[in-house]
Computed example of a mutant assay.
Amino acid sequence: MKQHVIIFAHPNNNSFTKALVDEVVKSSEQFGANTVVRNLYAMNFNPVLSQEEMQGAWQGIIPEEVLYEQKLIQQADLITLVYPVWWMGFPAMLKGYLDRVFTHGFAYQSSEQGSVGLLQGKKIQQFINIGNNVEAYQAKGFAQALDVCLVNGLFNYCGITDIDHQLFGDLYVISDQERKNMLTQVGEKTLQNLTAL
Rank of each mutant, 00 (worst) to 15 (best):
G153A: 08
Q70N: 11
V25G: 00
L98R: 04
K123P: 05
K140M: 14
E52Y: 11
K140F: 15
V101N: 05
P84S: 06
G60L: 03
S28A: 08
S50T: 15
Q51G: 15
Q120N: 12
I128Y: 08
V134N: 04
N46L: 00
F16M: 05
W86Y: 15
Q126W: 09
Y97R: 04
M1G: 09
H165V: 03
L67H: 15
M182D: 13
V5I: 13
L183C: 03
N12P: 06
K18M: 14
I7D: 00
E188A: 06
T190M: 00
L171H: 07
N34P: 05
N39H: 12
N133F: 12
Q113E: 14
Q138A: 09
I61L: 11
N13C: 05
Q51V: 15
G105T: 11
Y108N: 03
Q74R: 12
S111M: 08
L150H: 14
N13R: 14
R100E: 05
Q109R: 15
A196T: 08
Q177E: 10
G96K: 07
H165C: 02
D162W: 13
D164L: 06
A145V: 08
T195H: 13
A145I: 08
H165W: 12
V25P: 03
V21C: 04
T190I: 00
A92E: 09
L146C: 08
L171A: 08
I6K: 00
V37S: 04
P91C: 09
Q120V: 12
N12K: 10
L197K: 03
F31I: 05
T190L: 00
A136L: 13
E64W: 13
Q177N: 11
A9I: 08
R100M: 01
N14F: 11
M54I: 14
L154A: 12
V21I: 06
A145Q: 15
Q185Y: 12
F127A: 02
V173K: 10
G60H: 09
V36W: 12
F102D: 00
G60I: 06
L171Q: 08
M88G: 13
S15E: 02
S175C: 03
I6Q: 02
E69D: 07
Y97D: 03
F155H: 12
Q185G: 06
L167W: 11
Q3D: 11
I130S: 00
G114H: 10
F8L: 11
T80H: 09
S50E: 09
V173I: 11
V66P: 00
A196Y: 02
W58G: 11
L197N: 05
V25Q: 04
L150W: 14
A136H: 14
A136E: 15
A33G: 01
L197F: 04
H10N: 10
L154D: 01
